[in-house]
Design a binder for these strands. Structure first.
Length: 519
DNA sequence: GAGTTTGAAACT
DNA sequence: CAGTTTCAAACTC
Protein backbone atom coordinates (compact mmCIF):
# COMPACT_ATOMS: atom_id res chain seq x y z
CA UNK A 1 0.00 0.00 0.00
CA UNK A 2 1.32 3.38 -0.88
CA UNK A 3 0.69 4.62 2.58
CA UNK A 4 3.86 3.01 3.71
CA UNK A 5 5.67 5.55 1.70
CA UNK A 6 3.74 8.21 3.41
CA UNK A 7 4.60 6.76 6.71
CA UNK A 8 8.19 6.91 5.83
CA UNK A 9 8.15 10.35 4.40
CA UNK A 10 6.12 11.64 7.23
CA UNK A 11 8.58 10.49 9.76
CA UNK A 12 11.60 11.44 7.86
CA UNK A 13 10.50 14.83 6.90
CA UNK A 14 10.34 17.29 9.66
CA UNK A 15 7.94 19.39 7.74
CA UNK A 16 5.79 16.52 6.77
CA UNK A 17 3.01 17.35 9.08
CA UNK A 18 3.28 20.89 9.93
CA UNK A 19 5.60 23.74 9.69
CA UNK A 20 5.65 26.00 12.62
CA UNK A 21 7.07 29.29 11.63
CA UNK A 22 6.48 31.26 14.71
CA UNK A 23 9.00 33.68 15.99
CA UNK A 24 9.68 33.71 19.69
CA UNK A 25 7.53 36.77 20.18
CA UNK A 26 4.59 35.03 18.73
CA UNK A 27 5.51 31.66 20.02
CA UNK A 28 3.88 32.06 23.36
CA UNK A 29 0.62 33.10 21.86
CA UNK A 30 0.93 30.58 19.15
CA UNK A 31 1.56 27.90 21.69
CA UNK A 32 -1.65 28.78 23.39
CA UNK A 33 -3.43 28.50 20.19
CA UNK A 34 -4.47 25.21 18.99
CA UNK A 35 -2.37 22.56 17.46
CA UNK A 36 -4.70 20.15 15.92
CA UNK A 37 -4.21 16.52 15.39
CA UNK A 38 -6.45 14.42 13.36
CA UNK A 39 -8.19 12.13 15.67
CA UNK A 40 -9.11 9.67 13.04
CA UNK A 41 -7.61 6.31 13.61
CA UNK A 42 -6.23 6.09 10.15
CA UNK A 43 -4.23 9.18 10.60
CA UNK A 44 -3.17 8.22 14.05
CA UNK A 45 -1.60 5.16 12.59
CA UNK A 46 0.33 7.33 10.27
CA UNK A 47 1.31 9.64 13.00
CA UNK A 48 2.87 7.15 15.30
CA UNK A 49 4.50 10.04 17.00
CA UNK A 50 3.36 13.53 17.54
CA UNK A 51 3.38 15.32 14.24
CA UNK A 52 5.01 18.18 15.94
CA UNK A 53 7.82 15.96 16.97
CA UNK A 54 8.32 15.08 13.40
CA UNK A 55 9.87 18.40 12.90
CA UNK A 56 13.14 17.36 14.45
CA UNK A 57 15.88 18.54 12.26
CA UNK A 58 17.67 15.25 12.41
CA UNK A 59 14.84 13.93 10.39
CA UNK A 60 15.49 16.39 7.67
CA UNK A 61 16.34 14.54 4.52
CA UNK A 62 17.98 17.13 2.42
CA UNK A 63 16.94 20.66 2.68
CA UNK A 64 19.26 22.64 0.53
CA UNK A 65 18.28 25.82 2.21
CA UNK A 66 16.29 26.97 5.11
CA UNK A 67 17.70 24.30 7.31
CA UNK A 68 18.60 26.75 9.97
CA UNK A 69 15.05 27.92 10.09
CA UNK A 70 13.79 24.41 10.16
CA UNK A 71 16.22 23.50 12.85
CA UNK A 72 15.03 26.32 15.00
CA UNK A 73 11.45 25.50 14.36
CA UNK A 74 11.95 21.88 15.01
CA UNK A 75 13.32 22.50 18.43
CA UNK A 76 10.63 24.91 19.32
CA UNK A 77 7.84 22.75 18.17
CA UNK A 78 8.70 20.11 20.69
CA UNK A 79 7.76 22.45 23.46
CA UNK A 80 4.40 23.25 22.14
CA UNK A 81 1.29 21.77 23.57
CA UNK A 82 -0.70 19.46 21.46
CA UNK A 83 -4.38 19.35 21.73
CA UNK A 84 -6.79 16.94 20.37
CA UNK A 85 -8.90 17.88 17.48
CA UNK A 86 -12.28 16.63 16.59
CA UNK A 87 -13.31 16.77 13.00
CA UNK A 88 -16.52 18.52 12.41
CA UNK A 89 -19.52 16.52 11.49
CA UNK A 90 -19.65 18.18 8.14
CA UNK A 91 -16.32 16.96 7.03
CA UNK A 92 -16.23 14.31 4.45
CA UNK A 93 -14.17 11.21 4.34
CA UNK A 94 -11.31 12.87 2.57
CA UNK A 95 -10.72 14.93 5.60
CA UNK A 96 -9.05 12.06 7.28
CA UNK A 97 -6.46 12.19 4.60
CA UNK A 98 -5.73 15.76 5.44
CA UNK A 99 -4.50 16.05 8.93
CA UNK A 100 -5.86 19.32 10.10
CA UNK A 101 -2.62 20.80 11.15
CA UNK A 102 -3.84 24.15 10.17
CA UNK A 103 -2.07 26.64 12.23
CA UNK A 104 -4.29 29.43 13.24
CA UNK A 105 -1.76 31.07 15.40
CA UNK A 106 0.52 32.24 12.76
CA UNK A 107 0.32 35.95 12.79
CA UNK A 108 0.74 36.80 9.22
CA UNK A 109 2.79 34.00 8.02
CA UNK A 110 0.44 34.74 5.23
CA UNK A 111 -0.92 38.14 5.70
CA UNK A 112 -4.10 37.90 3.83
CA UNK A 113 -6.55 36.38 6.15
CA UNK A 114 -9.58 34.70 4.85
CA UNK A 115 -13.01 35.99 5.52
CA UNK A 116 -13.74 33.07 7.72
CA UNK A 117 -11.09 34.09 10.11
CA UNK A 118 -11.14 37.78 10.62
CA UNK A 119 -8.68 39.49 12.83
CA UNK A 120 -9.61 42.20 15.16
CA UNK A 121 -8.01 45.50 14.44
CA UNK A 122 -5.51 44.51 17.02
CA UNK A 123 -4.49 41.52 15.09
CA UNK A 124 -5.94 39.29 17.70
CA UNK A 125 -7.99 36.36 16.88
CA UNK A 126 -11.66 36.84 17.03
CA UNK A 127 -13.09 36.44 20.41
CA UNK A 128 -15.03 33.37 19.56
CA UNK A 129 -11.90 31.68 18.57
CA UNK A 130 -9.48 32.81 21.13
CA UNK A 131 -11.58 32.51 24.19
CA UNK A 132 -10.39 29.11 25.10
CA UNK A 133 -7.63 28.83 22.64
CA UNK A 134 -9.61 26.46 20.56
CA UNK A 135 -10.24 27.49 17.02
CA UNK A 136 -13.85 27.64 16.14
CA UNK A 137 -13.10 28.42 12.58
CA UNK A 138 -10.44 27.43 10.23
CA UNK A 139 -8.97 29.01 7.21
CA UNK A 140 -10.21 27.51 4.03
CA UNK A 141 -8.35 28.40 0.93
CA UNK A 142 -9.87 28.45 -2.49
CA UNK A 143 -6.81 27.84 -4.56
CA UNK A 144 -7.35 26.61 -8.04
CA UNK A 145 -4.10 26.81 -9.92
CA UNK A 146 -1.40 26.70 -7.32
CA UNK A 147 -2.18 23.23 -6.06
CA UNK A 148 -1.85 24.84 -2.66
CA UNK A 149 1.87 24.46 -2.97
CA UNK A 150 2.77 28.08 -3.32
CA UNK A 151 2.71 30.94 -0.99
CA UNK A 152 -0.40 32.16 -2.67
CA UNK A 153 -2.11 29.52 -0.62
CA UNK A 154 -2.77 30.65 2.89
CA UNK A 155 -2.66 27.16 4.21
CA UNK A 156 0.65 26.42 2.65
CA UNK A 157 2.06 29.78 3.60
CA UNK A 158 1.14 29.17 7.19
CA UNK A 159 2.80 25.80 7.12
CA UNK A 160 -0.43 23.92 7.37
CA UNK A 161 -2.13 21.23 5.50
CA UNK A 162 -5.29 22.05 3.76
CA UNK A 163 -8.26 20.77 5.59
CA UNK A 164 -11.79 21.27 4.56
CA UNK A 165 -10.73 23.83 2.02
CA UNK A 166 -12.41 24.57 -1.23
CA UNK A 167 -9.22 24.19 -3.17
CA UNK A 168 -8.88 22.38 -6.46
CA UNK A 169 -6.19 19.84 -7.17
CA UNK A 170 -4.82 20.31 -3.72
CA UNK A 171 -1.47 18.79 -3.01
CA UNK A 172 -0.98 20.34 0.34
CA UNK A 173 -1.82 17.15 2.10
CA UNK A 174 -0.29 13.94 3.28
CA UNK A 175 -1.19 12.18 0.11
CA UNK A 176 1.18 14.43 -1.76
CA UNK A 177 3.79 14.78 0.85
CA UNK A 178 6.71 14.49 -1.50
CA UNK A 179 5.38 17.18 -3.76
CA UNK A 180 4.71 19.27 -0.75
CA UNK A 181 8.22 18.82 0.46
CA UNK A 182 9.56 19.84 -2.89
CA UNK A 183 7.42 22.90 -2.82
CA UNK A 184 8.59 23.79 0.64
CA UNK A 185 12.17 23.31 -0.39
CA UNK A 186 11.71 25.39 -3.47
CA UNK A 187 10.00 28.12 -1.58
CA UNK A 188 12.74 28.22 0.99
CA UNK A 189 15.31 28.32 -1.74
CA UNK A 190 13.71 31.38 -3.19
CA UNK A 191 13.27 32.96 0.16
CA UNK A 192 14.66 31.43 3.34
CA UNK A 193 12.37 33.69 5.31
CA UNK A 194 9.33 32.76 3.33
CA UNK A 195 7.66 31.04 6.23
CA UNK A 196 8.78 33.36 8.91
CA UNK A 197 6.30 35.79 10.35
CA UNK A 198 6.37 39.03 8.53
CA UNK A 199 5.53 41.17 11.43
CA UNK A 200 8.15 41.75 14.05
CA UNK A 201 6.86 42.74 17.43
CA UNK A 202 3.32 42.85 16.28
CA UNK A 203 0.66 43.02 18.92
CA UNK A 204 -0.88 39.67 19.36
CA UNK A 205 -3.00 40.17 22.38
CA UNK A 206 -3.19 42.20 25.47
CA UNK A 207 -3.65 40.03 28.44
CA UNK A 208 -2.46 42.07 31.31
CA UNK A 209 -1.29 45.46 32.24
CA UNK A 210 2.35 44.71 31.80
CA UNK A 211 1.64 43.46 28.35
CA UNK A 212 -0.54 46.46 27.79
CA UNK A 213 2.33 48.79 28.50
CA UNK A 214 4.71 46.74 26.46
CA UNK A 215 2.36 46.81 23.54
CA UNK A 216 1.97 50.49 23.94
CA UNK A 217 5.64 50.99 23.47
CA UNK A 218 6.32 48.45 20.82
CA UNK A 219 4.70 48.46 17.49
CA UNK A 220 5.60 45.91 14.97
CA UNK A 221 6.37 46.49 11.42
CA UNK A 222 6.28 44.44 8.32
CA UNK A 223 9.63 42.87 7.64
CA UNK A 224 9.44 43.37 3.92
CA UNK A 225 6.98 46.15 3.85
CA UNK A 226 4.12 46.55 1.48
CA UNK A 227 4.08 47.89 -2.05
CA UNK A 228 0.57 49.16 -2.24
CA UNK A 229 -0.32 51.66 -4.87
CA UNK A 230 -4.04 52.18 -4.83
CA UNK A 231 -5.34 51.02 -1.54
CA UNK A 232 -3.74 53.76 0.48
CA UNK A 233 -2.62 50.95 2.72
CA UNK A 234 -6.00 51.17 4.35
CA UNK A 235 -7.48 48.02 2.99
CA UNK A 236 -6.76 44.47 3.74
CA UNK A 237 -4.95 44.16 0.50
CA UNK A 238 -2.19 45.83 2.39
CA UNK A 239 -0.26 43.43 4.51
CA UNK A 240 0.73 46.11 6.93
CA UNK A 241 -2.81 47.25 7.43
CA UNK A 242 -4.01 43.73 7.75
CA UNK A 243 -1.36 43.04 10.31
CA UNK A 244 -2.45 46.15 12.08
CA UNK A 245 0.92 47.76 11.98
CA UNK A 246 1.88 51.06 10.55
CA UNK A 247 3.69 51.12 7.30
CA UNK A 248 7.36 51.52 7.86
CA UNK A 249 10.57 52.40 6.15
CA UNK A 250 10.44 48.89 4.77
CA UNK A 251 7.46 49.78 2.67
CA UNK A 252 7.46 51.13 -0.82
CA UNK A 253 3.84 52.05 -0.87
CA UNK A 254 2.33 55.03 -2.60
CA UNK A 255 -0.13 57.45 -1.12
CA UNK A 256 0.15 55.71 2.17
CA UNK A 257 -2.37 56.56 4.80
CA UNK A 258 -1.35 53.92 7.24
CA UNK A 259 0.93 55.89 9.43
CA UNK A 260 0.95 57.19 12.93
CA UNK A 261 -1.64 59.86 13.35
CA UNK A 262 -3.27 59.28 10.03
CA UNK A 263 -6.71 60.75 10.18
CA UNK A 264 -7.88 58.50 7.42
CA UNK A 265 -6.74 55.52 9.38
CA UNK A 266 -8.37 56.73 12.54
CA UNK A 267 -11.54 57.52 10.71
CA UNK A 268 -11.53 54.10 9.24
CA UNK A 269 -11.14 52.46 12.59
CA UNK A 270 -13.87 54.58 14.07
CA UNK A 271 -16.05 54.18 11.09
CA UNK A 272 -16.12 50.48 11.62
CA UNK A 273 -16.84 51.05 15.29
CA UNK A 274 -13.90 49.01 16.25
CA UNK A 275 -12.36 51.01 18.99
CA UNK A 276 -9.72 48.58 20.00
CA UNK A 277 -6.93 48.54 22.46
CA UNK A 278 -4.70 48.99 19.51
CA UNK A 279 -6.37 52.20 18.68
CA UNK A 280 -5.69 53.44 22.14
CA UNK A 281 -2.23 52.05 21.97
CA UNK A 282 -1.38 53.60 18.69
CA UNK A 283 -2.99 56.88 19.38
CA UNK A 284 -1.37 57.19 22.74
CA UNK A 285 1.89 56.11 21.27
CA UNK A 286 1.57 58.71 18.60
CA UNK A 287 0.74 61.32 21.16
CA UNK A 288 3.72 60.35 23.24
CA UNK A 289 6.04 60.33 20.34
CA UNK A 290 4.98 63.69 19.16
CA UNK A 291 4.74 65.27 22.53
CA UNK A 292 8.28 64.42 23.38
CA UNK A 293 9.84 65.03 20.06
CA UNK A 294 10.88 68.20 18.36
CA UNK A 295 12.99 66.49 15.82
CA UNK A 296 10.45 67.07 13.13
CA UNK A 297 10.49 63.38 12.50
CA UNK A 298 7.43 62.49 10.57
CA UNK A 299 6.03 59.10 10.94
CA UNK A 300 4.76 58.53 7.52
CA UNK A 301 6.50 55.61 5.92
CA UNK A 302 8.04 58.05 3.54
CA UNK A 303 9.43 60.06 6.35
CA UNK A 304 10.86 57.00 7.97
CA UNK A 305 12.48 56.12 4.74
CA UNK A 306 13.75 59.62 4.52
CA UNK A 307 15.21 59.43 7.97
CA UNK A 308 16.84 56.16 7.30
CA UNK A 309 18.06 57.07 3.88
CA UNK A 310 18.08 60.55 2.53
CA UNK A 311 16.47 63.55 4.07
CA UNK A 312 16.35 65.31 0.77
CA UNK A 313 13.67 63.20 -0.86
CA UNK A 314 10.54 65.17 -0.37
CA UNK A 315 7.17 63.49 -0.40
CA UNK A 316 3.66 64.76 -0.82
CA UNK A 317 2.78 63.96 2.76
CA UNK A 318 5.36 66.34 4.02
CA UNK A 319 3.34 69.51 4.23
CA UNK A 320 0.28 67.90 5.62
CA UNK A 321 2.06 66.09 8.36
CA UNK A 322 4.32 68.89 9.27
CA UNK A 323 1.19 70.77 10.03
CA UNK A 324 -0.06 67.96 12.16
CA UNK A 325 3.14 67.75 14.05
CA UNK A 326 3.33 71.43 14.58
CA UNK A 327 -0.11 71.71 16.03
CA UNK A 328 0.34 68.81 18.32
CA UNK A 329 3.58 70.13 19.59
CA UNK A 330 1.84 73.32 20.44
CA UNK A 331 -0.43 71.41 22.69
CA UNK A 332 -3.51 71.06 20.60
CA UNK A 333 -4.53 67.49 21.02
CA UNK A 334 -7.50 67.76 18.80
CA UNK A 335 -5.43 66.13 16.16
CA UNK A 336 -4.76 63.12 18.22
CA UNK A 337 -7.57 61.67 16.28
CA UNK A 338 -9.80 60.60 19.04
CA UNK A 339 -13.09 61.89 17.80
CA UNK A 340 -15.19 61.30 20.83
CA UNK A 341 -18.34 61.81 18.94
CA UNK A 342 -17.47 58.71 17.07
CA UNK A 343 -16.15 56.88 20.03
CA UNK A 344 -19.55 57.13 21.60
CA UNK A 345 -21.33 56.15 18.49
CA UNK A 346 -24.71 54.75 19.12
CA UNK A 347 -24.40 52.14 16.51
CA UNK A 348 -25.92 48.88 17.60
CA UNK A 349 -22.71 47.17 16.65
CA UNK A 350 -20.67 49.50 18.71
CA UNK A 351 -19.90 47.90 21.98
CA UNK A 352 -17.88 50.81 23.10
CA UNK A 353 -19.14 52.31 26.25
CA UNK A 354 -21.39 55.17 25.53
CA UNK A 355 -21.11 57.11 28.73
CA UNK A 356 -19.30 60.29 27.95
CA UNK A 357 -17.34 60.14 31.14
CA UNK A 358 -16.08 56.74 30.21
CA UNK A 359 -14.91 57.50 26.76
CA UNK A 360 -11.53 58.57 25.70
CA UNK A 361 -11.40 62.27 25.37
CA UNK A 362 -8.63 64.25 23.79
CA UNK A 363 -7.94 65.66 27.18
CA UNK A 364 -7.10 62.22 28.49
CA UNK A 365 -4.32 61.85 26.05
CA UNK A 366 -3.37 65.39 26.67
CA UNK A 367 -3.27 64.67 30.38
CA UNK A 368 -0.97 61.82 29.78
CA UNK A 369 1.37 63.87 27.69
CA UNK A 370 1.20 66.74 30.10
CA UNK A 371 2.05 64.48 32.95
CA UNK A 372 5.04 63.06 31.20
CA UNK A 373 6.27 66.40 30.05
CA UNK A 374 5.73 68.09 33.38
CA UNK A 375 7.37 65.36 35.35
CA UNK A 376 10.27 65.19 33.03
CA UNK A 377 10.66 68.92 33.25
CA UNK A 378 10.71 68.61 36.98
CA UNK A 379 13.50 66.11 36.81
CA UNK A 380 15.31 68.17 34.30
CA UNK A 381 15.13 71.35 36.32
CA UNK A 382 16.60 69.73 39.37
CA UNK A 383 19.66 68.73 37.50
CA UNK A 384 20.23 71.56 35.15
CA UNK A 385 22.35 73.38 37.70
CA UNK A 386 24.33 70.32 38.48
CA UNK A 387 24.88 69.72 34.86
CA UNK A 388 26.06 73.23 34.23
CA UNK A 389 28.51 72.78 37.05
CA UNK A 390 29.77 69.67 35.41
CA UNK A 391 30.07 71.35 32.09
CA UNK A 392 32.15 74.13 33.59
CA UNK A 393 34.34 71.71 35.43
CA UNK A 394 37.55 71.47 33.40
CA UNK A 395 38.50 68.28 35.17
CA UNK A 396 35.50 66.58 33.81
CA UNK A 397 36.26 63.57 31.76
CA UNK A 398 35.61 64.32 28.08
CA UNK A 399 33.77 61.08 27.90
CA UNK A 400 31.51 62.24 30.68
CA UNK A 401 30.84 65.44 28.79
CA UNK A 402 30.10 63.36 25.84
CA UNK A 403 27.60 61.45 27.83
CA UNK A 404 25.97 64.70 28.84
CA UNK A 405 25.74 65.74 25.29
CA UNK A 406 23.71 62.70 24.56
CA UNK A 407 20.98 64.28 26.58
CA UNK A 408 20.81 67.02 24.06
CA UNK A 409 20.07 64.67 21.28
CA UNK A 410 17.39 66.38 19.24
CA UNK A 411 15.21 63.35 19.28
CA UNK A 412 15.25 63.16 23.00
CA UNK A 413 14.51 66.72 24.03
CA UNK A 414 11.01 67.57 24.91
CA UNK A 415 10.90 70.96 23.44
CA UNK A 416 13.72 72.92 22.02
CA UNK A 417 12.54 76.09 23.63
CA UNK A 418 11.70 74.73 27.02
CA UNK A 419 14.08 71.91 27.44
CA UNK A 420 17.23 73.41 26.10
CA UNK A 421 20.26 72.05 27.86
CA UNK A 422 18.17 70.24 30.39
CA UNK A 423 19.20 66.69 30.79
CA UNK A 424 16.83 63.90 31.38
CA UNK A 425 17.56 60.77 33.22
CA UNK A 426 18.55 57.86 31.08
CA UNK A 427 15.46 55.94 32.00
CA UNK A 428 13.18 58.86 31.38
CA UNK A 429 14.77 59.35 28.05
CA UNK A 430 14.41 55.68 27.49
CA UNK A 431 10.73 56.06 28.13
CA UNK A 432 10.55 58.92 25.74
CA UNK A 433 12.95 57.65 23.18
CA UNK A 434 12.52 53.97 23.60
CA UNK A 435 13.79 53.24 20.18
CA UNK A 436 17.14 54.70 20.95
CA UNK A 437 17.86 53.07 24.25
CA UNK A 438 20.55 50.88 22.84
CA UNK A 439 22.57 53.74 21.52
CA UNK A 440 22.14 55.64 24.71
CA UNK A 441 23.23 52.86 26.96
CA UNK A 442 26.21 52.15 24.82
CA UNK A 443 27.36 55.68 24.91
CA UNK A 444 26.80 55.96 28.60
CA UNK A 445 28.73 52.84 29.18
CA UNK A 446 31.57 54.39 27.30
CA UNK A 447 31.50 57.39 29.54
CA UNK A 448 34.34 55.85 31.41
CA UNK A 449 35.52 55.98 35.01
CA UNK A 450 33.96 58.59 37.19
CA UNK A 451 35.62 60.55 39.88
CA UNK A 452 34.54 59.95 43.42
CA UNK A 453 32.65 63.22 43.44
CA UNK A 454 30.93 62.29 40.28
CA UNK A 455 30.09 58.95 41.74
CA UNK A 456 28.56 60.65 44.70
CA UNK A 457 26.59 62.90 42.48
CA UNK A 458 25.64 59.99 40.39
CA UNK A 459 24.43 58.09 43.42
CA UNK A 460 22.30 60.99 44.52
CA UNK A 461 21.12 61.46 41.01
CA UNK A 462 20.29 57.85 40.67
CA UNK A 463 18.16 57.89 43.77
CA UNK A 464 16.21 60.87 42.67
CA UNK A 465 16.08 59.60 39.16
CA UNK A 466 14.69 56.37 40.41
CA UNK A 467 12.11 58.06 42.55
CA UNK A 468 11.07 60.39 39.79
CA UNK A 469 10.95 57.64 37.31
CA UNK A 470 8.88 55.63 39.67
CA UNK A 471 6.46 58.48 39.82
CA UNK A 472 6.46 58.88 36.08
CA UNK A 473 5.91 55.25 35.46
CA UNK A 474 3.25 54.97 38.13
CA UNK A 475 1.38 57.88 36.70
CA UNK A 476 1.92 56.59 33.25
CA UNK A 477 0.56 53.27 34.27
CA UNK A 478 -2.48 54.87 35.85
CA UNK A 479 -3.19 56.72 32.69
CA UNK A 480 -2.79 53.63 30.68
CA UNK A 481 -5.19 51.85 32.93
CA UNK A 482 -7.66 54.60 32.55
CA UNK A 483 -7.26 54.68 28.83
CA UNK A 484 -7.51 50.98 28.69
CA UNK A 485 -10.61 50.93 30.81
CA UNK A 486 -12.20 53.55 28.69
CA UNK A 487 -11.32 51.59 25.65
CA UNK A 488 -12.49 48.29 26.96
CA UNK A 489 -14.61 46.60 24.45
CA UNK A 490 -16.81 45.14 27.08
CA UNK A 491 -18.24 47.38 29.70
CA UNK A 492 -17.41 46.34 33.18
CA UNK A 493 -14.28 44.44 32.29
CA UNK A 494 -11.90 47.00 33.55
CA UNK A 495 -8.34 46.06 34.01
CA UNK A 496 -7.64 45.59 37.64
CA UNK A 497 -5.27 48.13 38.92
CA UNK A 498 -2.33 46.92 40.81
CA UNK A 499 -1.15 50.23 41.94
CA UNK A 500 0.69 51.22 44.97
CA UNK A 501 -1.83 51.43 47.82
CA UNK A 502 -0.47 54.78 48.71
CA UNK A 503 -1.41 56.07 45.33
CA UNK A 504 -4.92 57.03 44.58
CA UNK A 505 -6.07 56.34 41.14
CA UNK A 506 -6.70 59.60 39.41
CA UNK A 507 -10.35 60.33 39.00
CA UNK A 508 -11.97 62.12 36.20
CA UNK A 509 -12.53 65.07 38.43
CA UNK A 510 -8.88 65.17 39.24
CA UNK A 511 -8.03 65.02 35.62
CA UNK A 512 -10.44 67.75 34.83
CA UNK A 513 -8.90 69.84 37.52
CA UNK A 514 -5.42 69.17 36.26
CA UNK A 515 -6.57 69.78 32.78
CA UNK A 516 -7.97 73.13 33.62
CA UNK A 517 -5.08 74.12 35.81
CA UNK A 518 -2.52 73.18 33.26
CA UNK A 519 -4.46 74.74 30.49
C1' DG B 1 -22.52 34.78 -6.14
C1' DA B 2 -20.18 36.75 -10.05
C1' DG B 3 -17.09 39.96 -11.48
C1' DT B 4 -13.47 43.29 -10.44
C1' DT B 5 -9.61 45.06 -7.99
C1' DT B 6 -5.59 44.58 -5.61
C1' DG B 7 -0.96 43.43 -4.35
C1' DA B 8 2.08 39.46 -3.06
C1' DA B 9 4.40 35.78 -5.13
C1' DA B 10 6.38 33.86 -8.97
C1' DC B 11 8.51 34.24 -13.10
C1' DT B 12 11.38 36.28 -16.91
C1' DC C 1 16.97 44.17 -9.95
C1' DA C 2 13.05 45.64 -12.60
C1' DG C 3 9.18 44.48 -15.26
C1' DT C 4 5.56 41.17 -16.14
C1' DT C 5 2.52 37.45 -15.15
C1' DT C 6 0.05 34.56 -12.08
C1' DC C 7 -2.58 33.96 -8.33
C1' DA C 8 -5.99 34.18 -4.65
C1' DA C 9 -7.94 37.25 -1.29
C1' DA C 10 -10.46 41.40 -0.77
C1' DC C 11 -13.79 44.02 -2.38
C1' DT C 12 -17.95 45.71 -5.08
C1' DC C 13 -22.22 45.25 -7.05
Amino acid sequence: MEKSDHDLSSHQNPLAHQLDFSVPAAAAAAAVETKMIDSSQETEKKLSQSPLEDQRDEDLPSQPSGTEEQHRLGVKSLEEPVRSWQPSATEDATTTQKPPMHRLGHPLGKCRVSKQEPLTPLGQRTEAESKDGTPNKQKHCNCKASRCLKLYCECFASGSYCNGCNCVNCQNNLENESARQEAITGTLERNPDAFKPKIAGSPHGINDLQEDVRQLLILGKHSKGCHCKKSGCLKKYCECYQANVFCSENCRCQDCKNFEGSEERSALLHGSHHVSETYIQQTTNAALSRAVSTSGFLNTPESRKRKSKDASSAVPHLVQNQAVNRVIRNGDTSLFSIPNNKAVSGSPTCTYRSSLSNTIQPRHVKDLCTLLVATSLDVANKYSDKRRKHEKDPSLDPAQRDANEINDSPDCVLDSTRMDEKPLSPATRALMCYDEHVITSEKETSAGVKTSQEKEDADTSSEIYLEKERQILSSFRDFLIQLSNRGSIKAGTNIKTNTNPSRKEPQDEEQSHRDSSLG
